[in-house]
Design a binder for these strands. Structure first.
Lengths: 331, 331
DNA sequence: CTGTTAGCGCATTCAC
DNA sequence: GTGAATGCGCTAACAG
């Protein structure tokens, strides 16, 4: 914008028609005289006119745009979810506006509000805020839906990945390979997923006497994984589960650097199956998430809300084990 | 938006004041009676009012937002440039709206136009469109600036990376290691950078008799690099330069998979120095680009244009050689 | 089939 | 210090 160079009025004047007619031509309304339409189009071309989306949005009462909040756009996982979401939305004529919170929990609410003020709805992708904050925010920004890594937020999360199932699968995988001392690299401290995970680990330990799974605070980035070795190396841990692939890959890079054999000395498993996982050396064992499908499901849910339809049933996606080379028998 | 739940009028009515007063309170205009202001704020809280950015934009004549076009958001390089740009812009109270062209050259112009119609200016990050298209588009969307990988588009590119210098450096690096048969994995076919690169390679060949550098059409993604080996493996090439790190990393992944020693059988060099480069195995030799600085410089240039100041001098960034382990003596 | 009128939600002159 | 009126650029009835 910035004091629009050429407006609909300019075009109307130059084409000697009313603004309404210009509007009709621009929107492809068929009931316009061919000659007039041509004349308008010509002028549009000459003046380089292009309608202000802001004005259209205000007038139409909708922007045909939905906002998306992600905690970290540099994480390939979110990019892929976003792609699935984006193409699905695009197919319905919607565009997206993405905002990255950079893992700053305290900024999330404001960012969502902000995004919502210029769009018709919002998608909260793995919000890091507490469940309470979320519950408070949601009603003020709806239509809104949230994608979560845990399936137990049934009230809010329309789309979720069965993280617990995935971690259990990975744990069993390591245990089957003979590992008994396992570490879990924790993701961003969020919500009350804490207890859920603890419960899982206790269950697994119960089922497999002799096995211990220890949680280690970590983070969500490559470097978080890289530095995790500092606290891990002096332990007897032989198997490591990571909150996500970034963590696992960062750790793997560190181990390669320190010439620690993988999976000889320690087995590593990630979560998400980002592209790089396959290209790592050795290729990373991880749980594959159908990221584009998750994005699509999110759009389907959001579109339903947009249309005011009945709530669609929450979609829960099960990850799939990609057993590659970073995990092997305990030695 | 979507038929705004609560508007400024609602707040005004509930607080028994005029809309103008509500507006003043919302914008922190000091000349408002304390009690009234408090009353308004209370109502705002109760009603959960939050001003429509769309309406504000239209009224103010500016959105305090700038659009950014990138060819591939999943490429970490662009993310980092974006981050630099974003934080610089944020410091000046501007927000950004990103659009990803997914390397679809033909969509770029429309996307830029689209973005520009809801923002005050646009940044074209490594546009893939032809120089002619760019020249035609630019005037219609200004204020606009472009970031380029080549320094020779002096007329348009406000910020650029000295790609030619970087590739030359890498070529010399390989040659110094004894490589004489070198392949260059080409990026997206764009503009007329073709001849520039050819010129460079001829120069290098002249300066080093016996050396040949062959261009191989490739692409810009991990998988493009992965499949490049299919055409490379039957050649006598011992050194490979890649358009970017993604290509190099994809190729490296393939070579690890096929158990082809790197750099024993073939040396590889990338370009950009994305995070993953360091974590690859072996760590990737590449040219480091000051990506955040590039982003910041872009904002400085764009801000100047926004203010209608004189054109700032084009900024050209020189990449720096990061000699790591994917390049070694010819064997 | 085209022009006139009104209004989307907000900020901002201008009087009061 | 506050309210009433006007306009940002566009679309959508409504007439004609």
């Amino acid at each position: 914008m910035t004091v629009r160079a050429v407006t609909i009025a300019d075009v109307a004047a130059a084409a000697r028609v009313s603004r309404a007619t210009v509007s009709r031509v621009m929107n492809g309304v068929p009931t316009v005289n061919g000659e007039i339409a041509d004349r308008v189009r010509t002028v549009v071309g000459e003046l380089g006119y292009s309608p202000s989306d802001t004005a259209r949005s205000l007038s139409l009462g909708q922007s045909k745009t939905v906002g998306v909040l992600v905690p970290d756009l540099s994480n390939p996982t979110f990019q892929q979810i976003l792609q699935g979401f984006n193409s699905a939305a695009a197919a319905d004529g919607y565009r997206i506006l993405v905002t990255d919170s950079h893992e700053e929990v305290d900024d999330e609410a404001a960012l969502v509000l902000d995004a919502r003020n210029r769009t018709d709805a919002v998608l909260l992708c793995s919000p890091r805020m507490s469940e309470e904050q979320l519950a408070e925010l949601l009603p003020t920004v709806k239509p809104a839906i949230v994608i979560t890594r845990e399936a137990h937020f049934q009230t809010e999360a329309s789309v979720s990945a069965d993280f617990i199932f995935g971690i259990r699968t990975l744990a069993e995988h390591l245990i089957a390979l003979g590992h008994t001392r396992i570490a879990y690299l924790d993701g961003p401290a969020i919500r009350n997923s804490q207890t859920t995970l603890d419960t899982l680990f206790r269950e697994v330990e119960m089922a497999h006497p002799g096995v211990t799974i220890r949680r280690v605070p970590c983070g969500s980035s490559l470097s978080d994984g890289y530095y995790a070795w500092d606290t891990l190396k002096d332990t007897t841990v032989t198997g490591v589960l990571a909150f996500n692939d970034l963590l696992a890959l960062g750790l793997l890079g560190r181990l390669n650097e320190d010439r620690v054999p993988v999976p000889g000395r320690v087995s590593i498993a990630g979560f998400d199956d980002i592209h790089f996982a396959r290209f790592a050396s050795p290729p990373l064992t991880t749980m594959k998430l159908p990221k584009p499908s998750i994005g699509e499901a999110a759009w389907v849910a959001l579109r339903a809300e947009l249309k005011g339809e009945a709530h669609v049933a929450p979609a829960i996606f099960r990850p799939e084990l990609m057993s590659r080379q970073t995990t092997g028998p305990r030695q």
